[in-house]
Every structure is written in structure tokens, then in C-alpha cells.
Nucleic acid binder design. Structure first.
Length: 592
RNA sequence: GGCUCAGUAGUUCAGUUGGUUAGAACGCCAGCCUGUCACGCUGGAGGUCGACGGUUCGAGCCCGUUCUGAGUCGCCA
């Protein structure tokens, strides 16, 4: 036998008994149960197989090796005398005639035990990610990711999309997040930027006539991390379609995503087409969020009229929002925790009262509400044994706090939270403009590439002062699943005339458009098709499918919160020679 | 950058009101064990209690500063 293996460690069954085989893998565990009897668990990508050691010669070899050493074992397959029904290979074992060390593990103490790596400190896991990934529990998320990406590719190709790669070294874009910059050796003082998204390239592909484009695109943004947001880089299923409307884009994803979610997800039910469409304003009004979790059937009601003047200080002169949960059974302790959690996350307080089984108003701010009992019961539609959560503040703040309360309350009420499913919805009709918090002036709400609903005409009216610019909506949409924003997309503004008018609203002119987006502006001046697209986040999708709360669990080699790769030690200092070539002078160095 | 929480053995953690020699589990080492499968039993090694400073007769514990990590807000067209 010259090859390294004849079978994998998840292949041998009773039918192989008597065959001479060669297996290779990592020594996951060694159990020595007698003078000359021991069991080695051999693990490879596919599974594990038990090697039984019965001779002094073999025992001496095994005894001298550390766990996680890679060995190959030649020997005969034998039926076990005591079988393990929990293992696919549990009915057989291999009796070795020859054991060869292929890759020695030099350490008898590992940073953590491989099959319990998920319990270890994350810093250690990231530093020794190659050990962490040996854990089948960790590895399975990466395999899931591969399967999902592969399915997405197949489905997009099936729908007539071409996979086209776009540059990684490109130009800095003036809008959006902070760029990652790459110094240009041949052009002192100039920089490339890593793309925040292939946005402009894909639109240029449309102008080039590539009807349908997609790409599993790496995107780079130098912004701080979150549990669900990897620092630095992430992947999007980026797509764009010529001559497409919003409905055409929706139809593609409504066809592509549900089967993949149902097949690979921890829940095997996914919304079927068409997904619910909710206007941005309605979403804020009814769910207190532009990414509502539709698995929760609770909605936000306005209670300003009935409770604004009830005498409770925080409600005075404010908008009051209420969420009613019927058949409520959580404990007082849970309610207190709920309110505390809302305050931590939203930065605003939540208030409450209940209707007890007799229909009396009790608990929380009951004493302020009791006087207005009849009006409140009627207005909010209260029934005995219901809980009423309340938030107050300026309209936007009251809504957002109610949105946080809704999510936390849902988690407390199994009867209002149908968890085991993927509930998709589209959030549509985002406002085109908003008043900037810092500037106090009109700014683009999302990105300037979206087509305003009403086109040139509505912009002209706004410019003439006949239409309030804040009421203009864009053909801009988000795809939301289980409270997670999966992607943003838009029908693009492909008409240079309308682009100029859109920019005029935020006090910019044609020269600014040309200066900021020269390639796109010029390309559109040579005849561009109407086009639309979207870019669902691959990492977020896999996270939802895996049922993980941390995005690091579904990325093969993740960085930590501070955008450091602890395994590769990136970022790192470089040779002075490299800096000189790049015309970079470092004035301040972090301590090593 | 703000706020919250955490940092004690290789790993995960406990450590009472500030009081003798800082404990457990897993891992590691040695011995025993002929059917284990999270093998078992016996014994052993292993600690700058993140760092610095302070209060105190006495600090893992109290106070201050600082470092590191996680979460969250800002930020993420």
C-alpha cells in the first residue's frame, strides 16, 4: 500500500470486515483500558473510526504519541465485540499491523481540548483557529457556508445571471463607510481603496450590456464590529439586472432564497413567495423598526391620546407607544428584567401595567392608568390577563424603544413568538432624503444612486417648493429575515438628468456628480438601461441558517472585535524598506 | 470614542464579612486495569489571582489608575 489511505474514517461498515485497509487521521483520543488493550479514536474530515490496540508493540507506539498527532494505520477491519450504536462506524474497528506517524503533535497540552473548543475563550480559539476548526461542531458551520454559497451560485446561474469578478484594488468612493486604503507605489501620495461594495462596477456592467450579473463579492469597510457584523471584510451575494423593476428583483430572491433556507437552516420552514411588503413608515409605526421580526405577532399601538395626559411624568407632552400581549404569564422578575434590558439596549425606559384575571389594572404605572381605565381598555383592546408595555419620547424615539421592547417581549411570550421558521419581508418606500442630525440640512437618506419614486417630475416639484422633499420616497428596499437586515437594494437612477436633480436637492450640482462618480456619470451619458439590484449578506444568511449569534462562528478565519487577526498577527509592522518604497512616513507607532 | 460586564492552574470556573498553606472539574504526568467509547481507580505536578499604585497588622476580595477581551451605543451610503 503506497497511498495514504484506502478509506476515510467514516466509511467502514460491517460489510468491510476482513478487508485490509489503510486509514489516516488525527488521534482524537486514546483509551488505555488494560496492560495490552487500548482504543485509539482516529478522526478525519469525514468522521471517526476506532483503532483497537492489542499488542505490546502497537501499544508502545501509541503510548509515545500525543493526542492530535496525525498517523496512518494499516490493518484488518474486524467486527466489534461491543458495538456503539451512536457512531456510524460503531460496529467495526481496525486492528493495526502498522502505524506510521505522518504529522507529529509536539505538545501534550493543547490550548484547549479540541472537541470542547466552543467552551474556550474566544481569543484563544481565534489564535489557534486551525485547532478550533478540527472540532466537528465548529467545522460544520464552515461546511454549511460552503454548501450555501454553492447553492446560491447554482441558483443564480440557473436564473441566467453571469458571475463576473470586479476589481479589489479600486478608487476611494466619497460616500459611505471609511475606506481601507492601499498606497500606490508608482504614484506617490495616491491610494487605491478596497471596494466597500462592487456598487459602481455592477452598474457599469449594466451600462456595458451584461443583462444579469452576480458575484459572491468581498466587501471592505473600516468600521467597528458587532456581534453580527465582522470588522473589515464580509461577503455579499451581489446582483444587478438590466431593464428590471423592483418586482423583478423581488421575484428572483423570492425564488432563490426560500428553498436554500428550508434545506440548510436550523428551521425547515421559510416564507414562500411573495414575501410581505411593508412600507418604511408603516414598519416604524407598527413594529418600531425597519427590520421587524415577523415571527413575533405583537404590534405597536399609539397611546398618546389616551395616556399622554394621564399624569405620569415621562408621558407628559410626549408620544406614547403601547404593545399589548394577551394571555400573559411571565413573572414580575421577568418583567423587571425586560424593562432593564430595554433600557440597556435602547437607552430609553420602558413602562408597563397589566390587566389581571378580573380585568383590574395592576402593576407598574397602574395608578396613573386606572383613572382612564375604560378609555384605555377600549382604545388598546385590552382583555383580562394581558400585559401592556409602554414607551414614551419624541415620536421617533418612542417608536424605536417600542421596537426594542417588542423584540424582548416576544422572547418572553411563547404564545406570541412562532420561532421555528424563517420569516421574510421586504421593507419598501424608504425616504429619499432626511434632515441630517449634524448639518440640520437635507441629505440623502441612504445612497444617491436610487431612483426617486416620481422621477424627474417629483424632484422638479420639490425644487420649485411644491413638494416637501421629505415626502419623496425612493425605489429602495431592504430584505429582512427574523429581525435581521439581510440586504439593501434599489432601482438605480440611470438617468444623468435625474441624477443631477437629485443632487441639486442636497445643494450639489452636475460638477459634483461628475467629480464624485465620474465613471458612472460618463457611462450613463452614453446610454444606460434602467436597472435594479440587491446584495444579500452571505455571512448574515449563513448565521441565520446555522442559528448562531456570533458572526465569527460562520467565518473560517475571523478577526476579533478590534479588527485583528490573532492567528496571523495582522495588522503588523512592516520593514522600513517597504514603507520607503510606498513613500510612507510613520510618525507614531503603537507600542509593540 | 461613551457605557456595561469579565480577567484566579494548560482550559472552564468557584472562592462567604478582608484573616492559616487559594479550591473543583476537565486536561497533563506516573501507577493499576483485557472491551473502552466523556472508560474507570489511585497518586502527583501545575498559580506573579491581568498590570501598577493605594488603604490595612493583613488584600484574590476594598479604593484609584491602566491593559486586555466580550456586549452595546456612536459608526456601518
Amino acid at each position: 500500500m503506497t497511498q495514504n489511505r484506502t478509506h476515510t474514517c467514516n466509511e467502514l461498515r460491517l460489510e468491510h470486515v476482513g478487508e485490509k485497509v489503510k486509514l489516516s487521521g488525527w488521534m482524537e483520543n486514546v483509551r488505555e483500558v488494560g496492560q495490552n488493550l487500548g482504543f485509539v479514536i482516529l478522526r478525519d474530515f469525514y468522521g471517526t473510526t476506532q483503532i483497537v490496540v492489542e499488542t505490546e508493540e502497537m501499544m508502545n507506539i501509541v503510548h509515545g504519541l500525543n493526542k492530535e498527532t496525525v498517523i496512518s494505520v494499516e490493518g484488518a477491519v474486524r467486527e466489534r465485540s461491543s458495538k456503539n450504536k451512536n457512531l456510524p462506524t460503531g460496529e467495526i474497528e481496525v486492528l493495526p499491523e502498522k502505524i506510521e506517524v505522518l504529522g507529529k503533535c509536539r505538545y501534550n497540552e493543547l490550548p484547549f481540548q479540541v472537541n470542547r473548543s466552543r467552551d474556550a475563550d474566544e481569543t484563544l480559539r481565534l489564535k489557534y483557529r486551525y485547532l478550533d476548526l478540527r472540532n466537528p461542531e465548529v467545522k460544520k458551520n464552515i461546511i454549511l457556508r460552503c454548501n450555501v454559497v454553492s447553492s446560491l451560485r447554482a441558483a443564480m446561474t440557473e436564473h441566467g445571471f453571469l458571475e463576473i469578478t470586479t476589481p479589489i484594488l479600486t478608487a476611494s468612493s466619497p460616500e459611505g463607510a471609511r475606506d481601507y486604503l492601499v498606497p500606490a507605489r508608482k504614484h506617490p501620495g495616491k491610494f487605491y481603496a478596497l471596494p466597500q461594495a462592487p456598487q459602481q462596477f455592477k452598474q457599469l456592467l449594466m451600462a456595458s450590456g451584461f443583462d444579469r450579473y452576480f458575484q459572491i463579492a468581498p466587501c471592505f469597510r473600516d468600521e467597528d464590529a458587532r456581534g453580527d457584523r465582522s470588522p473589515g471584510e464580509f461577503y455579499q451575494l451581489d446582483m444587478e439586472m438590466s431593464f428590471a423593476t423592483q418586482d423583478d428583483v423581488f421575484a428572483v430572491l423570492e425564488d432563490v432564497l426560500p428553498p436554500i433556507f428550508a434545506k440548510y437552516g436550523v428551521y425547515n420552514t421559510a416564507s414562500s413567495a411573495p414575501f410581505r411588503r411593508i412600507g418604511f413608515r408603516e414598519a416604524m409605526e407598527v413594529y418600531g423598526s425597519d427590520k421587524p421580526d415577523l415571527r413575533i405577532d405583537l404590534t405597536v399601538q399609539d397611546a398618546t391620546e389616551v395616556l399622554g395626559g394621564c399624569g405620569f411624568g415621562p408621558f407628559e407632552g410626549n408620544t406614547v407607544k403601547a404593545i399589548v400581549a394577551s394571555d400573559f404569564s411571565a413573572t414580575r422578575k421577568q418583567i423587571d428584567k425586560l424593562c432593564a434590558d430595554v433600557e440597556i439596549q435602547a437607552g430609553e425606559k420602558a413602562y408597563w401595567f397589566r390587566l389581571d384575571e378580573k380585568g383590574e389594572i395592576v402593576g407598574g404605572i397602574a395608578k396613573f392608568v386606572a383613572e382612564h381605565k375604560d378609555a384605555v381598555v377600549e382604545k388598546l383592546g385590552l382583555t383580562p390577563n394581558c400585559f401592556v408595555g409602554l414607551t414614551a419620547g419624541k415620536k421617533g424615539a418612542a417608536q424605536k424603544t417600542a421596537g426594542v421592547l417588542r423584540n424582548k417581549l416576544g422572547a418572553l411570550c411563547p404564545n406570541h413568538f412562532n420561532k421555528e421558521q424563517y420569516a421574510f419581508c421586504w421593507i419598501v418606500d424608504f425616504p429619499m432624503y432626511e434632515i441630517g442630525e449634524e448639518s440640520g440640512e437635507l441629505e440623502f437618506c441612504h445612497n444617491p444612486f436610487s431612483m426617486p419614486n416620481g422621477g424627474a417630475e417629483v424632484l422638479e416639484k420639490a425644487i420649485r417648493g411644491e413638494v416637501d422633499p421629505l415626502t419623496i420616497t425612493a425605489f429602495q428596499y431592504d430584505l429582512v429575515c427574523n429581525g435581521v437586515e439581510l440586504s439593501s437594494g434599489a432601482v438605480r437612477n440611470h438617468d444623468p438628468e435625474i441624477m443631477i436633480k437629485a443632487f441639486q436637492m442636497v445643494r450639489l450640482g452636475e460638477e459634483d456628480v461628475k467629480a464624485k462618480f465620474p465613471a458612472m456619470y460618463n457611462a450613463f451619458c452614453y446610454g444606460a438601461p434602467p436597472h435594479a439590484g440587491i446584495a444579500p449578506g452571505v455571512d448574515r444568511m449563513v448565521m441565520l441558517l446555522a442559528g448562531e449569534d456570533s458572526i465569527r462562528e460562520i467565518i473560517p478565519f475571523p478577526m476579533n472585535k478590534n479588527a485583528q487577526d490573532l492567528m496571523m498577527d495582522a495588522p503588523s509592522f512592516v520593514e522600513q524598506k517597504q514603507l520607503d518604497e510606498l513613500h510612507i512616513v510613520v510618525t507614531e507607532k503603537e507600542d509593540e
